[in-house]
Design a protein around this nucleic acid. Structure first.
Lengths: 293, 293
DNA sequence: TAAATACAAAGGTATGACCATTTTACCTTT
DNA sequence: AAAGGTAAAATGGTCATACCTTTGTATTTA
């Protein structure tokens, strides 16, 4: 009578839960486009109306957004829940960037350790992909610099090609770190780390830009990435943690140098023209970085 | 171009809005049965799939409830909307709670270590305040239990006073941990930790509720809190980290026990009446917890 | 009268088709 | 070779129909 009858589970609810789960697990990331409804319905083994009802449910919760003719996209509301308040805070208090970087170090360390413990073969394929792409982007960006590095007067005038190289490098870097975080198999950590990386994207860009003018810097980075990758591949958690911490310590030190260099450049832009070998100082700085590893 | 185009209004959205409006206006009152989908579709001038999508949207928000063969009814649930998206996720995917708890352990460990390193005198005054309040709430809640603990048959019937004790205990616990996190002097960590604690409040409540029925549990907790507090006070980072990790490992183990106990209670509610000394098992369980510290 | 049965109603699901919009590829033009 | 435009493919949006399962109720039967 008054008791609740056991309700028959609706198929659309199960589908919605599956999709939600996949979004949560990073199978579909923020901004990704879902497969077409017809394909997705087949791959899920349900009819299109059932899938559509599930999509509508998630869309009504703001997790998905559909555009006729375009596709259905993951809105990234989950990441935004972390990201938005923080970005606001960062805008008002730029000095918090060091706090974010510090937090990132913690999250990345833990992610690397867990990834080394829990990675699956599927994780490895993605890690290999992103690692390979990152190595390629690294050498490509380095190659561009070496190629055009003869004229030192242009260092403050990046070409469009340079900018593309840096951007793909940033994207590759983020993708690799994200792959590590997702190999840790903790959905919260994965989304949180994505949000933190987005917060730091400006710093990362600045850092890469400065670092690419130092020929040895990128090979250092490459070796650091390799160490991390191999530690996860060989399932050595402590080594993975150490590798990512060494990498981020190097990055942090480099960041401090970059900020100082940027400030210096502000006041001495003209003098750079007459002292084209200033980068020797940067090379010396990188040499000191290597002692951190 | 890439900016957001004005999206074509979906018919199902318009239908959902119409239905919601009619429910709000009292055309369909609470508990009413909506017209059959086929009739309603005709009367609204839309197809049944479109109407169904609209109904699913409202059902996913709790406004409607459909029973196969019965009909679609208006539930009195008005405006249960606008949760934290992560809160919703946790509701739909309970297995995520372990992820959150795992993340919390990381954050709390780091917070404790940093707090021991960086705490200021001002931090100490707040730590003392919250720690004292927590100890008070702990013994108060324990006292309530001991006072009313004679009749074991009532353990599943918490009084209003019990509930208040638990709630103040939860608040005190959160305040103390939050004070530790803020003594770490990383604003991002502080905000993040607060958010994570909010996500876990239900688990913490459940855990305290189960734990308070075991007389020795609260004194164990009190000693754990003391160890953490003293480590921060004496600026011993490693000890602080160890203390909070021991505490959270105990909590995690206790949580697992609580969930098992809750599940057991579900199926054996009657037997509890005839076996009032069941709590002896819980005490034994807690005794095993102490080996984790 | 009460239990069992049968029928109708209602929601749940599946299939197929067609429409509107967007995206993409190709082709023409400059 | 680059720019622009047009057509085709892709994709979500909508509709119609059919069939199934569950529920509610009227009918039949013991």
């Amino acid at each position: 009578m008054s008791a609740q009858k056991l309700s028959v589970p609706r198929l659309s609810d199960a589908v919605a839960e599956t999709l939600e789960r996949q979004i949560l697990d990073g199978v579909f990331k923020s901004g990704d486009r879902l497969p077409a409804e017809r394909e997705l319905a087949v791959s899920l083994g349900v009819s299109r109306p059932s899938l559509r009802e599930a999509i509508q449910k998630l869309a009504s919760r703001g997790l998905l957004r559909s555009r006729q003719g375009g596709g259905t996209f993951v809105t990234g509301q989950l990441d935004a829940a972390f990201f938005d308040p923080w970005q606001e805070m960062l805008g008002a208090h730029p000095e918090l960037r060091t706090d974010v970087a510090e937090l990132r170090r913690v999250l990345a360390s833990e992610a690397a350790e867990w990834a080394a413990k829990r990675r699956t073969p599927e994780d490895m394929t993605r890690l290999v992909q992103t690692f390979t792409a990152l190595r390629g982007a690294l050498s490509a960006a380095q190659g561009e610099f070496v190629q055009a590095g003869g004229g030192f007067g242009e260092t403050s005038l990046p070409t469009a090609q340079d900018k593309d190289g840096i951007e793909t490098l940033i994207a590759s870097d983020a993708a690799f770190h994200q792959a590590v975080a997702e190999a840790a198999h903790n959905a919260m950590l994965g989304h949180l780390y994505a949000a933190v990386l987005r917060l730091l994207v400006d710093d990362i860009r600045l850092n890469f830009s400065e670092l690419r003018e130092v020929s040895r810097a990128f090979s250092l980075l490459a070796s650091q990435y390799s160490t991390l990758f191999e530690a996860i591949r060989d399932q050595r958690p402590a080594a993975a943690r150490a590798a990512v911490e060494a990498h981020l310590d190097f990055v942090a030190e480099s960041m401090a140098q970059s900020l100082r260099a940027a400030a210096r450049r502000e006041t001495a832009a003209q003098r750079l023209q007459s002292h084209p070998d200033f980068s020797g100082g940067a090379i010396a700085a990188v040499a000191s970085f290597s002692s951190h590893a």
